[in-house]
């Protein structure tokens, strides 16, 4: 998570604290047990994703034709060779879930990074330029918000064609307005302050004012939004995968695994249950951590 790099900047906006900013952040973050729990789970999932090739017993696309639709080991007829069972084509569910973690986290992080970068630039430009530029940018964002998120994703995918990179683009476009609005609003509230005027008088250029003077003071809410944005992006991408508009087979994406297994809900409930559970656990852990970040970084937003 980008938290470590940005914490000093977020904390610098507050009056000098006796603790170092990082220590202060950490102590208020760890106060929230849910957030720590979420972080631990998330780290485990991230490690699984990074070392997927080492951990997974099989290749996610290898088909064992003699072992199709095996239940997990704790169910009747389970086989220790395939601890979580196999799907209709005889692929090992555990291996597919492990590799799916890589894909889902990759989607979530890419969407977050791309939309934060573009969102920060557009938001700062809107705030600093004002006038027509501001209006045009904000009206485009209004337009994106007006279309229900999934419908807009579907529209973008319909134009670009279904694939993993296009899923990322579609979800990025949908989530862009939040970042633009957030950055613009916090930049506008900073622009009038004395330190910005001082920097301007000293002769700081526009780019310096935007990215060096103002941006660090807008960063705390941005981190919170970005963390929650990762979980939303994972959900949205899984929904697209479920509708057959996301990653294409045989990619072991959790949403498309669910779509493949839909016809088996009567006969083999496990094939349907496990990928969804993986999505749920990942998203819950990110949201728990995001809540902790919010409480620690942004006292104004603190939910009592």
């Amino acid at each position: 998570m980008p938290a470590d790099t940005a914490v000093p900047a977020g904390a610098a906006a507050r009056p000098a604290a006796p603790q170092s900013p990082l220590a202060e952040f950490w102590s208020s973050f760890t106060e929230n047990r849910g957030a720590v729990f979420g972080m631990v789970i998330l780290v485990l999932i991230a490690l699984t994703a990074v070392f997927a090739d080492l951990i997974a017993p099989y290749s996610p696309i290898e088909q064992f034709r003699d072992f199709t639709k095996l239940p997990p080991v704790w169910d009747d007829g389970g086989n220790w060779r395939f601890p979580l069972g196999t799907d209709a084509l005889g692929r090992d569910t555990l291996s597919r879930l492990i590799h799916g973690a890589r894909i889902s986290l990759f989607i979530g992080l890419s969407v977050m990074v791309v939309s934060v970068v573009i969102g920060v630039c557009l938001g700062l430009v809107a705030a600093f330029a004002g006038g027509t530029v501001d209006s045009v940018i904000m009206r485009v964002m209004d337009l994106i918000i007006a279309v229900p998120s999934l419908v807009l994703c579907i529209l973008v995918v319909a134009v670009l064609g279904p694939s993993l990179p296009n899923t990322i683009w579609a979800v990025t476009i949908v989530y862009l307005p939040r970042y633009v609005r957030l950055v613009r609003a916090s930049a506008l509230s900073e622009i009038g302050k004395d330190y910005v005027t001082a920097a301007r008088v000293v002769g700081a250029g526009r780019l310096r004012l935007m990215f060096v003077t103002v941006l660090p003071n807008c960063i705390a809410p941005l981190i919170v939004q970005a963390a929650l944005g990762v979980s939303d992006a994972i959900l949205e991408a899984a929904a697209l995968g479920f509708l057959g508009l996301g990653a294409q087979p045989p990619t072991p994406e959790w949403g498309s695994m669910l779509a493949d297994s839909r016809e088996f809900i009567r006969s083999d409930p496990w094939i349907v249950t496990l990928p969804g559970l993986a999505i749920l656990i990942t998203v819950v852990s990110i949201n728990l951590m995001g809540d902790g970040l919010r409480d620690a970084l942004d006292p104004k937003l603190k939910r009592s």
Partner: peptide, 13 residues
């Protein structure tokens, strides 16, 4: 938190 994070297509199934 769980409801908020729910993949509703899976929840439905």
């Amino acid at each position: 938190v769980i409801g908020f994070s729910m993949p509703i297509f899976w929840w439905g199934l």
